[in-house]
């Protein structure tokens, strides 16, 4: 034996053992074991999660001695949520009837892109946190590009709740930015690049790509022109260089079209990230 000590998996080779966090599954509750209650572990789990010790929290919450309860489901959901395992988090949150589970479940579903599911979850809420509910509904409206609906929900913002006011203002800013943003047209970008290689990429805001497209197509056009001038249009050199140049020219038009799509998607991703952050951050202040 290379090493007789137990648990030496990581030492057998110089490369560290990678633990796949996506295979986390808690052990089934075993009533024959001395019972432990999740409510007694809540503060410790929060401490672990606040320190970024997600794996430890998941280990702790996987024990078979933990009695099933709403708190246990919530904590399991929260640990998975912190570990960015949104599907698992949603599954556990939805099993808990705690108020905080419902709001965290909405954020998990929003991360998963299940906006109608998130909306349905909030529709079933009838508790004291109405402004928080409206904040999350407003955020989901922004994620769904429903600007009129956003206005309806935002009209409930009071901007006076310490835990919510910053997020309410941030969502308003995002809504204004979206209203002011005009999506660029991929067709216009393609047309511009057809007129002048690289112009479409410049229109999309990618200077580097524009220069690269202009220089590549320009160089190939120069080579084709030289071959045409020296050997004539029917020469194999002209045909070969012309074909390559045409290929790059078409690629440049397609590239410009794609660049604008990417540019628009980047804006959408950026605003979505801000919205997701702001429908989540009040929960940390209120429930953790």
């Amino acid at each position: 034996m290379r090493n007789s000590r137990i648990g030496m998996a990581g030492r057998a080779h110089l490369k560290p053992v990678t633990i796949n966090p996506t295979v986390w599954s808690p052990q089934n509750y075993d009533a024959s074991l001395p019972a432990r209650y999740a409510s007694a572990e809540r503060d410790f789990v929060m401490y672990l999660l606040d320190r970024g010790l997600k794996q430890d929290a998941l280990t702790l919450l996987a024990q078979p001695c933990l009695v099933p309860s709403d708190t246990l489901s919530f904590l399991r959901g929260l640990a998975l949520f912190d570990d960015k395992q949104m599907q698992g988090a949603h599954s556990w949150f939805s099993q808990s009837s705690l108020e905080e589970s419902l709001f965290f479940d909405v954020v998990s579903q929003a991360h998963l892109g299940s906006y109608s599911g998130a909306r349905n979850t909030l529709d079933g809420y009838n508790g004291p946190r109405e402004e928080l509910r409206q904040l999350q509904l407003a955020g989901i409206s922004l994620l769904q590009d429903e600007h009129d609906l956003y206005g309806n929900h935002a009209s409930h913002f009071t901007y006076s709740d310490v835990d919510l006011s910053d997020s309410e203002k941030a969502l308003d800013d995002v809504a204004k930015a979206i209203a002011a943003h005009r999506n660029k047209s991929p067709l216009a970008a393609g047309a511009l690049s057809a007129l002048l290689p690289g112009a479409g990429q410049l229109y999309a805001g990618s200077l580097g790509e524009a220069l690269s497209a202009f220089l590549t197509v320009g160089s190939l056009a120069g080579i084709t022109a030289e071959n045409w001038h020296r050997y004539g249009v029917k020469s194999w050199r002209t045909i070969l260089s012309g074909s390559i140049c045409s290929l790059f020219y078409i690629g440049n038009i397609y590239g410009a079209y794609i660049s604008v799509d990417i540019h628009n998607q980047e804006f959408k991703d950026e605003t979505s990230a801000i919205v997701l952050y702001n429908i989540h951050i009040p929960l940390r202040n209120i429930y953790r």
Binding site: R5, G7, M8, A9, G10, R11, P16, V17, T18, I19, L53, Q55
Partner: peptide, 9 residues
Amino acid sequence: LEQLGRYDD
């Protein structure tokens, strides 16, 4: 943690 291969932790 070292025995578990979790060297960063």
